[in-house]
Design a protein around this nucleic acid. Structure first.
Lengths: 330, 330
DNA sequence: CTGTTAGCGCTTTCAG
DNA sequence: CTGAAAGCGCTAACAG
């Protein structure tokens, strides 16, 4: 079927023999309408297969019942989990969550934000690509619309923030590891992601705080490929046993995979600990000891922020340690 | 900073001392404008921090430089991979790809589609939730705008289709398995997803065609949890060795994980084969033998369809077998 | 409860 | 090349 010009409210009004105002009121239910007219309108609309033009509505109302979400990347399972939870919590009050991927690029991120602003979103949720370099974009967003940063934090902006306490997460890891081994004599290594995102930054800082300022550190990105490479480097450097704390489950999966392929024992030789606790990684073999983030609660908290019209505020959730086979309890 | 009413073209025109038409022409570059005026406009716009209101533009132009993507679920790594690739290919020609998750629900899917239609998207890409029950929604979409079904197919609609040949995928699996074992005497089991999506359907049909009409079959959903459960059932039913073909990598990960936890050998006792070949599953231990879909090419093909204004058409890509450790070559 | 009408911000004829 | 003005489809005053 060839796309045909679609019916407008005026068409419906004409067919139903009423005014456009009555059509509008019937269809959006903003005001009482005589039941008889209501029926005529509904029938005419059905007959013409009328679909409300949200662009017209948004232009008039200067809002759009839409919340925009800008993520750095959709292939990171943690981000897709957040996106999925957010869609779900906004579905209920009839708000459409639209997702835009910045594809790891600051320029694309800026484009996504101005696109959403130009579309008159009611609120903007974003996981900033970079801790410093995304500042202009976050600031621009916050100046125009209610903006909530998620997971990653650009300091000094007027936007709200929802995330997990990375410091508490690493504290849980430290507590767990301490109860299993003697942290003073057994080596602990950190495989993280390069500075740039606040979560990477905070996790590294917390490692230094809870374990040791000199904790050996390998920094790459949030990917399984990087996990493999990091493990290869450790082995090449002569490590034969250690506790490897990682910045994300995907990294941990790569680390574990490489170690096992090289004939190392996990957790015998190497304990491995992940971060995030969402996605299929949790179901892999062996199961991961990880820090689980409460993504569902975080999503609900964001909805609450969007609905309230309070001052920008920040909320840190406490994560939870999940014991798996890559680092079992004592 | 409190969100303030943002500047409009009229404001820019006033400040620059020109007409709104000139502002429009300068900013969108649709027509030649005197360089001097151009400069005045650009400066005024910068000074007022002017951002074009895309809603006004879309209302006037009846299009929006936007393509909508409706997926059943963002947590399925295959879908997020497609979403990511699509964002990337549309980024180049300056089209925003906006993603909406139907959260597995037909109602939400319908809402997503009418939302995009109401927003005047230039084209709509959708992975239908259900092979039959999504028909009304796909048809409605196709009647209003250029619509392309992706991965899953609702028969008998006027929408284009881009996907992989599941029959060819299963043929590759059959060829591989036949070269490793005697398919006549060694058991082959299929762990799939319940009918509903065309891909699940086609993969099962192809299993029956290439292997045997009586191939033992367990149907669940596209999740690692289901993979685990299916493996548990197989063991409970007394299976001690088999080749397990699955409908997706996430399922395969769950199957492998459960088997290894129960002390079975993979691929010694059980060979396991996945489908999709994207995401972190490929980096897990042991590595998966799987059927890789050419997601990048598929995304490019969709962009080509959107850009051309031809009749609806369908395109099936050939997948590729990737040998991993869960079912090595002979 | 219903109808008329004025715009939301923008692009695009149409004159000049 | 520039400006005035119409109008995209809708909702919200306002008057009846």
């Amino acid at each position: 079927m060839a796309p045909s010009r679609s019916a407008t409210m005026a068409d419906v009004a004409r067919l139903a023999g009423v005014s456009v105002a009555t059509v509008s009121r019937t269809l959006s239910g903003t005001r009482a309408v005589d039941p008889a007219m209501q029926r005529k309108v509904t029938e005419a609309a059905a007959q013409l297969n009328y679909q409300v033009n949200l662009v017209g509505r948004a232009l008039r109302q200067t809002r759009s019942s839409t919340v925009g979400l800008v993520v750095p990347d959709l292939e990171n399972p943690y981000f897709s989990a957040l996106a999925q939870q957010l869609s779900r919590v906004f579905s209920d009050p009839g708000i459409d969550l639209l997702v835009f991927s910045a594809d790891g690029s600051l320029e694309t991120e800026a484009r996504g934000v101005s696109s959403f602003l130009g579309r008159q979103v009611d609120a903007l949720v974003m996981i900033p690509v970079h801790e410093q370099l995304s500042e202009a974009t976050v600031t621009a967003a916050a100046a125009a619309v209610h903006t909530i940063q998620l997971d990653r934090h650009v300091p000094g902006t007027a936007a709200s923030y929802v995330g997990v306490s990375n410091r508490e997460g690493v504290r849980l890891v430290h507590e767990h590891v301490s109860s299993c081994i003697d942290v003073g004599t057994h080596p602990v290594v950190y495989v993280g992601a390069a500075q740039g995102s606040s979560s990477a930054h905070e996790r590294l800082d917390s490692m230094r705080r809870w374990f040791s300022p000199e904790v050996p550190t390998l920094l790459g990105d949030f990917s399984a490929a990087w996990g493999r490479e990091a493990a290869a480097r450790l082995l090449a450097d002569g490590w034969r046993s250690a506790t490897i704390v990682t910045a994300a489950d995907v990294i941990a999966v790569g680390v574990v995979s490489h170690l096992l392929h090289q004939g190392c024992s996990v957790p015998g030789d190497f304990r491995v600990i992940g971060f995030d606790g969402v996605g299929a990684a949790a179901f892999a073999y062996p199961t991961l000891t990880t820090v689980r983030q409460p993504v569902e609660e975080m999503a609900r908290s964001i909805r609450a922020l969007v609905e309230s019209d309070d001052e920008p505020s920040s909320r840190w959730f406490d994560p939870e340690l999940v014991i798996g086979e890559t680092s079992p309890g004592r």
